[in-house]
């Protein structure tokens, strides 16, 4: 039950990672690598859905769009939780927050014609380096070696 205390940083939101990580340890022991590769598919999906709602926030025009965005966010949460079942929560969050930040910068520059400046790029990089540091520090030291990057 110590696991519940490992999870607390939830940015962007992982609903049930706390229970996920309890199961994670068990599942990894039982199923080994097979489950882990499945976990990475969920990581990819959660990244894609994260980008979808962010894009939606910029593109939404009518009430129906917002219903769709709410559904996308809920789906995002679901995949995030599934990913956290097999991969350490800190790792999942580090990856998806980095991907989210990099792609919002790219979307800004190429889709929405926002001017890119080096100063902005550097400060965003510093910020996300901080987020990744914190997320990875969340991982329990006795986590499996397999998903260490």
């Amino acid at each position: 039950m110590q696991c519940i205390f490992i999870i607390p940083v939830i940015s962007g939101g992982c609903l049930t990672c706390s229970t996920g990580i309890v199961r994670f340890t068990v599942v990894v022991i039982i199923l080994g690598e097979k489950k882990i590769s499945k976990g990475w598919i969920y990581v990819t999906l959660t990244c894609i859905f994260e980008l979808l709602w962010i894009y939606g926030f910029n593109a939404a025009e009518n009430p129906l769009d917002f219903v769709l965005i709410a559904l996308i966010i809920i789906t995002d949460f679901y995949f995030l939780e599934k990913a956290c079942e097999t991969i350490q929560t800190g790792t999942v969050y580090a990856i998806f927050s980095a991907i989210g930040t990099i792609f919002t910068a790219l979307m800004d520059t190429f889709l929405f014609q926002v001017e890119f400046s080096w100063a902005k790029g550097i400060f965003i990089t510093l910020l996300i380096a901080g987020v990744i540091t914190l997320k990875l520090a969340e991982n329990s030291p006795n986590g499996t070696e397999k998903e260490k990057k």
């Binding site: 607390p8 940083v9 939830i10 940015s11 962007g12 962010i54 926030f57 910029n58 927050s97 989210g100 930040t101 919002t104 910068a105 979307m107 800004d108 929405f112 926002v114 902005k120 965003i124 910020l127 996300i128 901080g130 987020v131 914190l134 997320k135």
Partner: peptide, 19 residues
């Protein structure tokens, strides 16, 4: 705000604050 700035700051402050 530009999306990249809003998202990064939101993510950063949320994470740091929770920690």
């Amino acid at each position: 705000l530009a999306m990249s700035i809003a998202y990064a700051v939101w993510m950063g402050l949320g994470t740091a604050g929770a920690v």
